[in-house]
Design a protein around this nucleic acid. Structure first.
Lengths: 193, 193
DNA sequence: TATTATGTAGACCAGTTGTTATAATCGTGA
DNA sequence: TCACGATTATAACAACTGGTCTACATAATA
């Protein structure tokens, strides 16, 4: 279990970064919360904060991917599956008041001018988009239509999440869920005609 | 023209904050870019960075509002008007590579746990939402439907903008424009039936 | 002209940032 | 027990943060 220190470091960094942002989170806070000595940080991450940040982005991204994958697969009915997903995100925002476990949007916007971190975030978005698209294809939407719609749904999700957190109104996600599900239904119906 | 120093201070702060974020932008940089001595900053903003940040949020918000209002009013045809708006935002992202003049999402997410700044950002979002909704009502969409759709369009816009900036693909906004305009058309058509 | 507000200029401070270097400690196998 | 690599523990580092303070110039007013 020699990896546990390293993993705890990444996990708490990811959480704090999603909450407060990378710049607002000092190494001191990460070490305090994770109860890790400073020496260990530079032992596991010789290149310092940048290296830890890169790992944290990948970690947070994988976490989001897992949730989306799992939740979208939890119900064959796409309406229920998507509603379920949005409900989960709303719960997370309600309990923490932040984008913790929900989105990397804050990190992504913060790190736009640091190429390595920016492309790491871009990759996360791309993989999430694929998950949305796949689900749409799975339920019978044509490939190219599904791609556009999946992109659209992802954008709406990220946007709703940032507005919901800013306004401290997690329920906004439920309204978005309704809009998204009817949009999917409409697309399906329109396709048969 | 004794206000010009104060205004220049606010404008450059707003621009830098939208680009890099509040935490990443030191007072030193704001003063250097705006060519203002430190003494003047604390003369016009006795409460320091927080006060300047609040003013910058209001300024950036008003700027966005003006653009949305102006552009949505520029064409009676809603499809053209919205496409025009998204095109403008894409151009801004393309030229600066940041959310400069386009969105306060970064600032909003950064300042979630500072109540005054957070509510200032929430207000900006609310006012933008009203602008979208108003346009929809104007073109004949029922009030309650327009409200939900306006909210939806705003969320999509914010989300697309952050993803487009992260991926450095401003053209994503054009795809979103298509989706939004067909959604509006569909809503109008569906209403007559 | 003398006085007073208005605005500018920048030195200075205490605290924090990320980072480095070196010393101590631990665990484990020979 | 010894030795060796893997961790951890401190101390110190320069660079920077936001903020305060005082001295100075300017211009309006009395």
């Amino acid at each position: 279990m020699t990896e546990s220190v390293r993993e705890k470091l990444i996990a708490t960094a990811a959480s704090l970064f999603q909450k407060q942002g990378v710049r607002a989170t000092g190494l001191a806070e990460i070490l305090r919360v994770s109860q890790t000595p400073k020496g260990s940080l530079y032992y596991y991450f010789p290149h310092g904060k940048d290296e830890l940040t890169k790992a944290a982005i990948a970690y947070a991204g994988a976490q989001s991917e897992n949730r989306v994958k799992r939740t979208l697969a939890s119900d064959a009915d796409p309406t229920k599956a998507f509603t379920h997903l949005f409900q989960e995100m709303a719960d997370d925002i309600a309990s923490s008041g932040h984008l913790n476990h929900v989105s990397i949007s804050l990190i992504a916007l913060e790190t736009i001018d640091e190429p390595e971190l920016q492309s790491a975030c871009a990759q996360v978005y791309s993989r999430l988009e694929i998950l949305y698209t796949s689900k749409l294809i799975e339920i019978g939407i044509k490939d190219d239509v599904a791609r556009d719609l999946g992109q659209f749904i992802q954008a709406t999700t990220e946007g709703t999440v940032t507005i919901a957190a800013t306004k401290q109104q997690p329920k906004l996600l439920l309204k978005t869920a309704k809009q998204v599900t009817t949009l999917i239904r409409l697309t399906l119906a329109n396709q048969k005609a």
